[in-house]
């Protein structure tokens, strides 16, 4: 009982326990990533390859000018997200971010319902005048428009 383990063996046990804990954490983390990561989609992506209703993803694009309205209960915001190629109708129940404006970039996290309408749980609006969320910029680029980013550093 009281015999101290030989050093080598003690270190081996320690290393094995450590490895087991880290491996378990790693496996849990990978599964959690698989389950919870939200993919980014632009309206054109949805048109080309509609995600399953109920899958959580991030919808990005510009708020179509003239599309913003409100439902009768005064709480649900209705708007259309466009990437100049396709459009997705969306709604959001909650307070609208300060920077949410027509014609501005927006990223909404949420899911499609059975009819293809996007229900947002969270809205992120463009942060300031000279900043467009890189994801929105990329989505616009990905739609095949003759738009190139300023390439300050090669690329």
């Amino acid at each position: 009982m009281a015999v101290a383990r030989p050093r080598k063996q003690q270190r081996l046990v320690l290393a094995l326990v450590a490895l087991a804990v880290l491996a378990a954490a790693g496996v849990i983390a990978m599964f959690a990533l698989e389950d919870t990561a939200a993919y980014f989609r632009a309206p054109a992506d949805i048109e080309a390859n509609p995600p399953a209703p109920g899958e959580t993803f991030r919808l990005g694009g510009l708020v179509k000018p003239g599309s913003v309205g409100r439902s009768d209960d005064g709480l649900t915001l209705l708007f259309t997200v466009t990437d100049m190629k396709a459009e997705t109708s969306a709604s959001y129940r909650g307070l609208v971010p300060d920077l949410f404006r027509e014609g501005q970039g927006v990223i909404a996290t949420g899911r499609l319902d059975a009819s293809g309408h996007f229900e947002a749980e969270q809205l992120l609006a463009k942060h300031d005048e000279n900043y467009m969320p890189p994801e929105v910029a990329k989505a616009l680029e990905g739609t095949g428009h003759p738009m190139d980013k300023t390439a300050a550093k090669g690329g």
């Binding site: 100049m84 000279n130 900043y131 467009m132 890189p134 910029a137 616009l140 680029e141 428009h145 003759p146 738009m147 190139d148 980013k149 300023t150 390439a151 300050a152 550093k153 090669g154 690329g155």
Partner: peptide, 16 residues
Amino acid sequence: NLGKPQEAVVRSHMVG
């Protein structure tokens, strides 16, 4: 990742 252009400014898609 740095090598890729990641400017926040975006060229207009309206040119042309």
